[in-house]
Amino acid sequence: MKIDSHQHFWKFNPIRDSWIDDAMAIIRKDFLPKDLKPILKFNNIDGCIAVQADQSEEETLFLLNLASENSFIKGVVGWVDLASDLVETRLNYFSEFQKFCGVRHIIQAEPKGFLLNENFQNGIKLLEKYNLTYDVLVYHNQLEEVIEFVQKFPNQKFVLDHIGKPAIKTKEIQDWKVKIQKLALFPNVYCKVSGLVTETDFNKWNYSDFVPYLEVIFNSFGVEKVMFGSDWPVCLVAGNYEKVLAIVERYIADFSEDEKALIMGKNALNFYNL
């Protein structure tokens, strides 16, 4: 089974979705299951993981409702206020939804030290109890904090979104590489090969731009801890679904069929307890 481990749905709201700036105007509209389903079918992808894009329980419920109506949405990574005194009550509530499989908070927008905040970490401590994963979304200059953070939770399943957002546009790699190698040493930390094209000059990239970064990821994490994600529809600002998928498929073309199966689906199924 092939799984897209990272994509989003929304009904566009110009105030809530103000992060979608003029350079990303192409995605200033609604993106719903009816839009993604034919794309997945055309590309022989069997299902997807819907990931939060807004820090609200309202959106989490919106995604869970879509998942209940569309069987190809295999799981939902939602948002819960992990720093709240009510976090266990909320995790208990959302865990009643069969497809609620993980939590994400957009750390890239937070100040330095956020991951090490005691209240936030108290929420992270509860995720294992409910068999929930945590998606780590950060910029490359936040990876040192991520390393310090994950070592406090050896039994919690983490996945690094968008390979840690390296500066592909300026071809900076060395500092990011060192931190990725450290992070990959933790057996409970996985990585999504997603969000690559949006770290470049939109629509001016070449496949060769990504190869050095992919080499670091696969050499560090191994085929057992890497999963494909499209980051649709955000990817559309820099390339359509087929182009994004082709980057990964081209890189793994000479891998064994078993290795391809892990990267393109099995790792996501196992990681998210689907």
Rank of each mutant, 00 (worst) to 15 (best):
P33M: 06
K169A: 01
F202A: 09
I168A: 06
N240S: 06
L82P: 09
I27N: 00
L262D: 15
H162T: 00
G78E: 05
A268N: 04
Q7T: 04
T60S: 13
D135I: 03
L91R: 05
F202L: 12
R16V: 11
L32E: 01
E148R: 08
T200H: 03
S230T: 10
W19K: 03
P166F: 03
T89S: 15
R104W: 12
P187L: 09
H8K: 02
Q121L: 10
V237S: 08
E110I: 10
S84P: 04
G78M: 07
F186R: 13
Q55V: 00
I180Q: 03
S256G: 08
Y134S: 08
N206G: 12
Q52I: 03
L64F: 00
E145V: 14
I73Y: 06
Q142F: 14
G102V: 05
G195T: 02
N92P: 00
G102F: 11
D46S: 13
H105T: 14
I45C: 08
N203W: 12
L115K: 14
W205V: 01
D46T: 05
C101E: 14
K171G: 02
Q181A: 02
K99G: 04
I73C: 00
G239V: 10
Y93K: 11
K152S: 13
S18V: 13
L36P: 03
F271M: 06
S18F: 11
E215D: 15
K169T: 01
G265R: 02
S208I: 11
S208C: 06
E59A: 12
L245Q: 12
H8E: 10
K29W: 00
I173T: 10
M1K: 10
V150S: 12
Q7D: 07
M1C: 11
F221H: 07
G47V: 00
E96V: 05
A261E: 12
Q181P: 07
Y190K: 00
N267R: 11
I26W: 04
S208D: 15
E118R: 15
L32W: 01
S220A: 14
N119L: 05
K41Q: 13
Q108K: 11
E110P: 09
L274C: 15
S220D: 03
F255Q: 10
G265M: 04
N155I: 03
P38A: 09
A261P: 04
K182H: 13
E257M: 07
P14M: 04
